[in-house]
Design a protein around this nucleic acid. Structure first.
Length: 915
DNA sequence: GCAAGGTC
């Protein structure tokens, strides 16, 4: 019996497809890739019995990147990225083991059916899957593609019965897009970033990025900004008569001319209107109008609502929606489709909601009266619109997820509800001189027309589910008939000013991006998030996006040098050319080479004319040499370097012209006027900002948010002095054999939590002394109020051997004989009784084993998450540092003479202490 | 430290 492997684009689809094809009888098991389950069942294929194995990938298997020296910002010239730099496909997310997973499942299969999404990206993933299973399938030729436009029984079974072949040309169009985006984006980004960061000190952005989607997105925001700047208010005037209705109520009328910008004209018209003592009713109209029910909900609309109604960023809206989806409360939230498939069981979805206290009445009412036929929007052939799948309560979801879920439910009910119907009534009035005063005859000789409008609700329809879209209370109009007259109380002449447009709301921007074809439903939130993170725009109240000086200058610069770089049409044109590849009308290589050639020329022209951008930059930003405050001395020229705190924070030496990167965030202090023994740069103390996520460890770049601090040498931090050290490490990670700030001088023991790091004394933490792991978030408080705490160097300890301050008698070379931790020397001030044995002022011993010291040491704690909460260190508590390319102390022949001694693996005492 | 596109 043939066995077929079937691969979907995502785990949820593998489940749906297997369920539809097996009538729910598929047997599920885990695969190598944690998120990708495998479903197996028997059925029929091409007229014979077959066994099926259905699994999935998670989006793209591979992603494109440069290789070798071209990944380096220092080694490669950005211009080389257009043609010279080779690229390679790497596994997109190695942690998911997708390739291994596919290879395992392909074994023993006679053929493969590709169930990737039916778009260009899906076609590309087909070939990524085929690449992965190449050589693992029993047959090279049994390769099929399923073409489906909805996840329904009919669609899926029909697709299986009408398999086609994967479309190489569509896949190549995506390959071309990937390569083009990578080369162009990285070349411009690297060039701009290095150029501007090398010249200005207050850009406050760690990356001056450029991209074919993000840049036009920013341009849309800047365009509105320019409109606002260019706006000059104008005066205008309008007439507003007040008439007295039967019964004595006054009613203000709207002028049919609207706004008039010529004051003299308005004055003349005012005189005419004022000449009337009565307003005459010229016409009475009443028309039924409707307000249409919404289209079924797709992703972009959800993002717009999330931003404008719920105040949530698009990125966050998607996170919340994805969680609702994985918990089973809503259908798949990434879809372009705003049309329910004909097979969609609308009543079933509505029945889910009947027991709800919020919308149960509405749902039951609709089920009893019959659902209204939903409107048909776009059918992109991907997933059905977003609908509720399971009834939830606010307490189950929490208030934020609940608000989104509540919206999705209300929107769904609204789509199967009738339109809103209302009556729109208009009364037209004439104010002026009457014919009877005219010798000429019956016509009016001069007068102005005014209107009063009112509305009456006929039926609320869908606005019962979405009350915020309702009509509001009826605004009734008096029952006047044509020809009747009402007295004019007064005619006001109002002076007003035109007002500028406001900044773009996020919802408006999403709409514009969709209109211009910038990004996709899945990537729109990413692009908006990017321009915020790069400090190109800020989110103001009402989620309006206001460009920063940096954002404005960049776009104005592009407009001056090469306007096409930021025009929204640029992306569309590239997509059009790529479309030709997909249609087989153009060759992959020639389209790609042509596009790369164009952008390469644009790049060179941009580089040559960057002075134009500089002129704009200089108006808003300070030169690097004039930025920052003098802070600490340069090891090369011994003059003071300046500390620039704005992103990217760094030390800049105006004399040497060099800049030294610092860990992101936090702030910098001088460090006791100490200098690095290697390069004589003054050491600085980096102090992490409060809050933020944990995880980064002491002396590691990226520890910005841990709230920890560590000393670093600005030069060594950027140029690791010893083999085995990485860039971005502070003194506590330095392998210097004798420097008093390196790990050898501060290390007490190997960390029992992560097993890879060392527990080091923080020499500036007193009087609340703290020991921290230099790899994981573990920390230990100890010896509170001690005046001085030091870790004993091995030899120095020997000289104190026979002196009574030693707790651990017979210990040799400053090492605890029980646990092999280095000994510490603890001194308390004379001003108060010491907590040591006999109130001794000084004691040397093992902080873990010595009976005089260990009571003064707290239990280890591990910072968890962003709250900075602490918990007992446990086997699982500590996170591993990034890599552990370096062995623990004393190994590898590095300075064995210093503190070299290899701890035993079974440090029973320590392990018991930590665990 | 780069892009945009999938999806977790």
């Amino acid at each position: 019996m043939p066995k077929l492997l079937m691969v979907a684009e995502k785990p949820s689809l593998a489940q749906s497809i297997s369920s539809l094809l097996s009538n729910g009888r598929a047997v599920v098991r885990k695969g190598v890739s944690p998120p990708c389950s495998v479903y197996e069942f028997r059925g029929h294929f091409q007229g014979q019995n077959a066994s099926f194995r259905v699994t999935s990938v998670c989006g793209h298997v591979n992603s494109l990147d440069f290789t070798g020296r071209y990944t380096s910002w220092e080694l490669a010239d950005p211009a080389e990225l257009f043609t010279v730099a080779p690229t390679e496909k790497k596994e997109a997310n190695p942690k998911l083991y997708i390739v291994k997973h596919l290879q395992m499942e392909a074994q023993g299969c006679d053929g493969i059916v590709l169930w990737l999404d039916c778009d260009k990206e899906g076609e590309n993933i087909c070939f990524e899957v085929l690449d992965a299973v190449n050589g693992y399938l029993a047959s090279q030729t049994n390769v099929w593609r399923a073409r489906f436009s909805a996840i329904t029984q009919v669609e899926i079974t029909t697709a299986l019965a009408n398999l086609i072949k994967p479309d190489k040309e569509a896949a190549q169009a995506v390959d071309a897009r990937q390569e083009l985006d990578l080369r162009v984006g990285c070349a411009f980004t690297r060039f701009q970033t290095k150029y501007f960061q090398g010249r200005y000190g207050d850009l406050d952005s760690s990356l001056v990025s450029f991209g074919p989607c993000q840049t036009p997105t920013l341009a849309l925001c800047v365009s509105r900004h320019d409109e606002i700047q260019a706006f000059r208010p104008e005066n205008y005037w309008l007439l507003q008569p007040m008439v007295v209705l039967p019964g004595g109520v006054t009613l203000s009328l709207d002028w049919d001319r609207g706004r008039v910008f010529d004051r003299e004209v308005v004055l003349a018209l005012l005189a005419i209107a004022r000449s009337a003592t009565n307003a005459q009713v010229m016409s009475v109209t009443s028309k039924e109008r409707t307000k249409a029910r919404p289209l079924p909900l797709n992703t972009v609309e959800l993002l717009r609502v999330g931003s404008s109604a719920l105040g949530m960023s698009p990125q966050h809206t998607m996170q919340v929606a994805e969680k609702l989806y994985t918990q089973g409360y809503i259908s798949y939230p990434r879809t372009e489709t705003s049309s329910y498939p004909s097979s969609f069981d609308l009543p079933a979805s509505l029945r889910l909601l009947t027991s709800s206290s919020e919308w149960g009445d509405l749902a039951r009412g609709l089920l009893e009266e019959g659902l209204n036929k939903p409107r048909k929007g776009n059918d992109a052939g991907d997933h059905p619109p977003i609908t509720p799948c399971l009834l939830a309560t606010e307490s189950q979801l929490g208030s934020e997820a609940w608000r989104l879920y509540d919206y999705i439910c209300r929107h769904f009910i609204a789509t199967v509800s009738p339109d809103l119907h209302y009556l729109h009534k208009e009364l037209s009035f004439w104010l002026g001189s009457h014919a009877e005063h005219s010798a000429m005859g019956s016509e009016e000789i001069g007068g102005e027309f005014f209107t009063a409008t009112g509305h009456y609700l006929v039926s609320p329809g869908f606005t019962q589910a979405m009350p915020w879209l309702g009509l509001g209370p009826d605004s009734a109009l008096p029952d006047l008939v044509v020809g009747s007259q009402v007295p004019v109380e007064e005619v006001h002449m109002l002076e007003r000013q035109t007002s500028p447009p406001n900044y773009l709301t996020e919802a408006e921007l999403i709409g514009l991006m969709e209109k211009h074809g910038i990004g996709t439903d899945a990537s729109i939130p990413v692009h908006i998030n990017n321009i915020c993170q790069r400090n190109y725009v800020t989110v103001e109240s009402g989620r309006r996006l206001k460009p920063t000086s940096l954002g404005v200058v960049l776009i104005h610069g592009y407009q001056q040098i090469d306007p096409e770089l930021s025009l929204p049409g640029m992306r569309a044109e590239v997509e059009r050319q790529l479309g030709l590849i997909a249609l087989g009308q153009a060759d992959f290589r020639s389209v790609l080479d042509h596009a790369l050639d164009i952008f390469k020329r644009k790049f060179h022209y941009f580089v040559e004319n960057i002075a134009g951008m500089d002129e704009l930059m200089e108006v808003s930003f300070s030169p690097l040499a004039a930025s920052g405050k003098p802070h600490s001395r340069c090891g090369k020229c011994r003059r003071y370097m300046k500390y620039i705190q704005a992103r990217p924070s760094r030390l800049h030496c105006p004399q040497c012209g060099d800049s030294y990167s610092l860990p992101p965030g936090g702030s910098l202090r001088t460090y006791r006027d100490l200098s690095c023994p290697l390069d004589h740069f003054e050491l600085v103390l980096w102090v992490g900002g409060p809050g933020g996520g944990g995880g980064a460890s002491r002396g590691e770049a990226g520890g910005a948010s841990t709230g920890r601090s560590f000393p670093l040498c600005p030069y060594c931090f950027n140029n690791p002095p010893f083999e085995g050290m990485r860039k971005g490490q502070g003194c506590p990670s330095c392998l210097h054999p004798s420097c008093p700030h390196g790990e050898r001088a501060l290390a007490v023991s190997r960390c029992g939590s992560c097993q890879t790091g060392l527990v080091l004394l923080d020499p500036v933490s007193g009087p609340r002394w703290i020991f921290c792991c230099n790899r994981c978030p573990l920390s230990i408080r100890a010896f509170r109020n001690a005046s001085r705490v030091t870790v004993l160097p091995a030899q120095a300890a020997a000289s104190d051997m026979e002196d009574g301050t030693f707790g651990c008698a017979r210990s040799s070379l400053g090492v605890c004989p029980t646990c092999e931790a280095s000994l510490v020397r603890v001194e308390y001030p004379n001003s108060a009784p010491s907590p040591l044995l006999n109130s001794a002022p000084l004691h040397i011993g093992c902080m873990f084993c010595d009976s005089a010291l260990s009571p003064l040491v707290d239990s280890p704690t591990v910072r968890v998450g962003s709250e900075g909460s602490t918990g007992r260190g446990s086997r699982r508590g500590g996170r591993r540092g990034r890599g552990s390319g370096r062995s623990g102390w004393g190994s590898g022949g590095q300075g064995e003479a210093g503190r070299g001694h290899r701890p035993r693996d079974k440090m029973a005492a320590l392990a018991a202490y930590f665990v």
